[in-house]
């Protein structure tokens, strides 16, 4: 398994997946001016599969995320969710179709409390955002679910604390909780454990591991232990191209990955930079 050409990589995959892919990314091409950031990138994620995305900084991981989430419309190629083409759909429509994401840099309702953040998520998830004539307090299911979610995340003590005062790791947890609250079919996680303490990392890993069994996950992660602990399949990106794609074990065993990421090479893996 050292295919450099993504077309070959696709050909090497089993011809028919047991289940139709939840998310299919097909020959994505994108460039910012003359800088090519995605060059013929393809990947499929089946229901229940956790797909890892690795590559050095600037490999085009975040751009690919933005393309899948709809923040960027690619110059070429397509994105399909459950067999439905969504390449040109705006982000909010994709979200309603079942595509949720967490952001690399926490993107929360910072001046609202944890409870309020989860309630906002709950209102969107329940599709009651247009209800203007009934008090929110009457929407028991939304309010109770927010509390339940916070409890499951261990955030019950900070339920009524404004989010911007919380620690980075706690906000990170909330970021993921908000995405999961949408009960998505596909979840994109952009560096979920970046900047977290080891305990928090374990906690998040557990949360991700016990997400719904048919959820398709695409995860960018710099911590290789976390990544290979979760991922079933892995795609390696480099300069916008698919360098390698396959089962996690195969990728882990490959020379390129061992040299670059797993530290058998004299050049050590650079630690994750902690965003402020």
């Amino acid at each position: 398994m050292s295919a450099v050409d993504p077309v070959d990589a696709q050909a090497m995959r089993p011809p028919a997946l047991e289940r139709a892919p939840r998310l299919r990314v097909e020959s994505i091409h994108h460039a910012f001016g003359s800088l090519v950031v995605s060059d013929d990138v393809s990947l499929d994620i089946a229901p229940g599969e956790c797909h890892g995305l690795i590559g050095p900084n600037g490999a085009g991981k975040s751009t690919l995320f933005d393309i899948i989430a709809g923040e960027i419309i690619p110059l070429g190629g397509g994105v399909h969710l459950d067999g439905k083409e969504i390449t040109g759909e705006p982000p909010d429509r994709r979200a309603r179709l079942g595509l949720a994401r967490s952001f690399q840099h926490n993107d929360l309702f910072a001046e609202l409390t944890v409870r309020e953040n989860l309630i906002v998520g709950g209102i969107v998830a329940h599709g009651i955002g247009h209800v203007a004539w009934r008090a929110l307090a009457r929407e028991r299911s939304v309010c109770e679910k927010a509390e339940m979610l916070a409890m499951r995340l261990g955030l019950e003590d900070v339920l009524d604390t404004e989010v911007h005062t919380l620690s980075y790791g706690t906000r990170r947890q909330l970021e993921i909780a908000l995405a999961l609250e949408m009960e998505p079919k596909v979840l994109l996680l952009d560096e979920p454990t970046a900047g977290m303490s080891p305990e928090e990392t374990v906690h998040i890993q557990e949360r991700i591991a016990d997400s719904p069994p048919d959820l398709a996950l695409l995860i960018v992660e710099h911590d290789m232990d976390v990544l290979f602990g979760l991922a079933d399949r892995v795609t390696v990106l480099d300069y916008g191209r698919v360098l390698l794609q396959g089962d996690a074990e195969e990728v882990r065993a490959s020379d390129i990955v061992r040299q670059r990421y797993l530290g058998t090479d004299p050049v050590p893996t650079t630690p994750v930079s902690i965003p402020s």
Binding site: D92, R93, A100, R101, F103, G121, V124, L178, M182
Partner: peptide
């Protein structure tokens, strides 16, 4: 931005 990403209209 975040509300849109969550799927709010």
């Amino acid at each position: 931005h975040r509300l849109r990403a969550l799927g709010g209209f």
